[in-house]
Design a protein around this nucleic acid. Structure first.
Lengths: 96, 96
DNA sequence: ATATTTTAGTTTATATTATAAACTTATTTA
DNA sequence: TAAATAAGTTTATAATATAAACTAAAATAT
């Protein structure tokens, strides 16, 4: 039987965000925006969802005088990401 | 940059259907239903979408006297599935 | 000095999607 | 022959993703 895929992670943009955050200590909103090519609005919404799920922590501060939002993956986020990858492999390991 | 994920395949149930069909010559509606645990309605809709995309072919016949729908992955479906898996790996290879 | 553009986002509206519930039609079985 | 099961389809609803519109402040140009 196919395992359930975490709906928070089974989303193109949220998965991209998590993928970025899994590789760095932390990343700024504008960096993630550039890397993913997402619009600000979409990114803002999806960051909120990941944050609400406890998968990332979000800190709103300033960089000089400009506002600057910094995101960081949490231990729960790392675990969820790993579980998602494991589950997904059940689906995509077919055909070979 | 993250590659675009084929929206037809980036769906839990449709991906499960494709995963099953990638491994067998063909499969009946009821077999897919049992393997995926999906409801008939949902399965019917998603099979239609995969069929409309040209990723599977659907044959409606009879098994004895009962109607029997048989699904088969197409070459285009195999290719799309492979491309999806390749694209997805860009996302999930992070964190290690 | 003030008008314009850019940065850094948030909120809201829309369009799409997934999903299940309700329905159809025929077939076994009691 | 009445009830239950099989094999789906259609339709309605709820959730989702996405972009458009908006806010507010800072940097830059006039």
């Amino acid at each position: 039987m196919f395992p359930k895929l975490d709906p928070i992670l089974h989303s193109e943009l949220r998965l991209a965000i998590m993928s970025i955050l899994a590789d760095v200590d932390s990343a700024e909103f504008s960096y993630i925006k550039k890397q993913t090519g997402a619009t600000s609005g979409n990114l803002s919404v999806q960051i909120d969802k990941l944050s609400a799920a406890g998968y990332i922590s979000v800190e709103k501060g300033f960089k000089g005088k400009m506002p600057c939002t910094t995101c960081k993956i949490t231990p729960a986020g790392i675990e969820a990401f790993e579980n998602y990858v494991t589950a997904l492999k059940e689906y995509i390991s077919a055909g070979k």
